[in-house]
Each structure stands twice: as structure tokens, then as C-alpha cells.
Nucleic acid binder design. Structure first.
Lengths: 161, 161
DNA sequence: CTTGACATTAAAGTTAACTTTAAAGTCAAA
DNA sequence: TTTGACTTTAAAGTTAACTTTAATGTCAAG
């Protein structure tokens, strides 16, 4: 199958598929006599696997180290380890998220509970000090910040030219 | 206070503080006669607020729109709305995380439950098809991916020169 | 009066995961 | 035979949130 069809079947952009190849993530590709890329049906599986892996928090770099070029050659040990590590990461992240949410909820409550007889500035300071924002909260830095919560942007609809 | 002290008190890098100023996020800064930046004590509050906001998933861009230059001029309405929106975002994200984790756990179980009498390739295919990786899982794209789960990298320890 | 720590600037570099652009070749169909 | 859809490439652009670099200025202390 050519890149267009693969793109359609995986709902990825052709440029994305070429990119994955360029970084050594997708190696199952041959060339037709005319130079066009030619993919086996399993390429769909692998690309879906990559997408799934990304959704689970694996970087393309991690995935490259994890996914063998040959589907028949999975290193079960390393793979399972990585999966378990990632589950741990997610659990830790869930904790951090819960904390952030709790803090936001508390902040909202704090702001809403404004005594009504004090002005904005005073209330602002009250809220800030109550929330412990005056002191550094986490002395030890936690790896990875919540980058993913930003607004959705330029998202292209594949195949809707 | 000069930038060095502010950096120490907030545990941010001076370059970071200058950067925040450059994008219009931190406006409470004057200049000494010699050209050095001079910050009021409230700058510590604001920077901590920014850091906290980031941890809760706000982008610097969102924070800029949300935080007024003057602490006494909080727009409670817009602020509360934004906070509630963010709580929603986090909740949605928690759901996605939980799904990802469940999928990973199921995947681990699936791999471990390998019948032992079949080879790697066959098992791989069995796992892949069982996990539904052959079909596109989410037809509609969800905004925001889990970028934050990547490995921790170059993290500088402020003040440990 | 020199040293060292700190400050300034503009501009370029970093990372991840892609997309966009530009210039060109391929190919089935009208 | 000329569209038009699809393909190729290398290289540059994008975004966020910073850092690094380089060249220079300030200032308290020895």
C-alpha cells in the first residue's frame, strides 16, 4: 500500500508517517520501482500501536527503543518493564493532578467565600496567603509538568481537503 | 530587591524571570539608576502564583490574560470562570489518564497471560488484536495529549553552583 | 585598582513532534 | 495531451517555555 492509503487507514498525515520513518520509528517500508513508498498491511498495526503508546504517555523516543522493527521479535521482558514503569508514572501523575484540582477547588471556594465587607486588594492578599502561595509549596521538584492541559489548537482534519 | 534575590526567593532562574517580563507576564518591575531591575516584595507572590498556575495546567499565555498587573484589580468573574474551566479540564484529563492506565494494565495482563505454547509472533498478533489496536480507538480526537509523562531531563538546581 | 559576583542586552539555541514549503517526478483519466 | 491527484526530497518553520551565549557594565571588597 502507498502512503496515502496508509495515512487514510491510520488517520495520520502522510508527513507524519514520513517523519516517523525519518526518526527510525517506522522501518517496515520498501520502495516501488518509481520511488514511491510501499507499506505492508502490518504498518497499520504498528502505527496504531505508536499512537496508542503516545496516548499512554510514551515519547516517540521511548517507543523507538521499545518497538522492534520486526513484530515477531518483541522483547517481552523490557517491554513489560517499560509498561509497568509507565503505569507507575501515570499513577504518580494522577496524584499530582488530583492535588492540583484540589488546590484549584479550594482556591475557588476561598475566593467565593469573600467576606463581602473587604475590598479586592485585601481579599486578594487573604486568598494568596491562605493558599500558601507565599511560600514555595514543593521543595523538591517533580519531574514533568502538566503541559497537556493547554487549549486545543490547530488540529487538522485528515482527508477533508 | 534585585533579580538575584528574587530568583533565590522564588527558586526560579534569573533568565526565567527576565523571560516572564519579556512576554508581559511580570510587569511589576522598575529600574535602579544603574539599569538594574528592581522588584517590590509582591513580585514573590506573583511569581509563586505563576508557578502554581502552571502546575495546575495554565499556560503562560492564559496566565497573562488572567493575571492583572495590579494585584488589587482582580477580575473575580473571569478568574473564577477560568478556574472552574481548568477544574473541568483536569477532570477530563483524569478520565483519559485512567483509561490509558487501564489499557496499559490490560495490555500487561494480556502479555503475561501468554499461553506459553505459542511463539512470540503469534502472541504479538494475539495481543494486538485483543487490545483493539487494529482499529482506530477514538474516532474523535481529544484535545491535548499526555506530553508530561516523558522522562525527566535537564533540570537545574537553583543556587547549587 | 583589580578581582569576582552580579547585572544588562540581543540573538541564537533547545526539545518534541510535527507541518509547511518548494521544486520536481509519476500516473490514471478525460 | 493535459489535467489533477498523488508522490518524492531537503530544508525551513512552528510552538512553548525557557536557556545559553557573548559582549559589556556595575560595584563591593581586598
Amino acid at each position: 500500500m502507498k502512503i496515502g492509503e496508509l495515512a487514510e487507514r491510520t488517520r495520520l498525515a502522510p508527513s507524519q508517517i514520513r517523519f516517523y520513518e525519518s526518526i527510525g520509528l517506522l522501518k517496515m517500508v520498501r520502495r516501488q520501482p518509481n520511488g514511491y513508498r510501499s507499506y505492508p498491511p502490518e504498518a497499520v498495526l504498528v502505527l496504531n500501536l505508536i499512537v496508542t503508546g503516545q496516548k499512554a504517555g510514551f515519547s516517540l523516543d521511548e517507543l523507538r527503543r521499545l518497538l522492534p522493527s520486526d513484530l515477531a521479535q518483541w522483547e517481552h521482558g523490557r517491554l513489560l518493564d517499560a509498561l509497568r514503569d509507565k503505569v507507575q508514572d501515570i499513577a504518580a501523575f494522577e496524584t499530582r493532578l488530583a492535588q492540583s484540582k484540589a488546590q484549584l477547588v479550594a482556591l475557588i471556594a476561598e475566593i467565593e467565600a469573600r467576606p463581602d465587607d473587604i475590598d479586592c486588594a485585601t481579599n486578594a492578599k487573604r486568598v494568596l496567603s491562605r493558599m500558601g502561595l507565599c511560600e514555595t509549596q514543593s521543595p523538591t521538584l517533580v519531574a514533568g509538568d502538566i503541559k497537556a492541559l493547554g487549549k486545543a489548537k490547530r488540529r487538522r482534519v485528515a482527508g477533508a481537503g
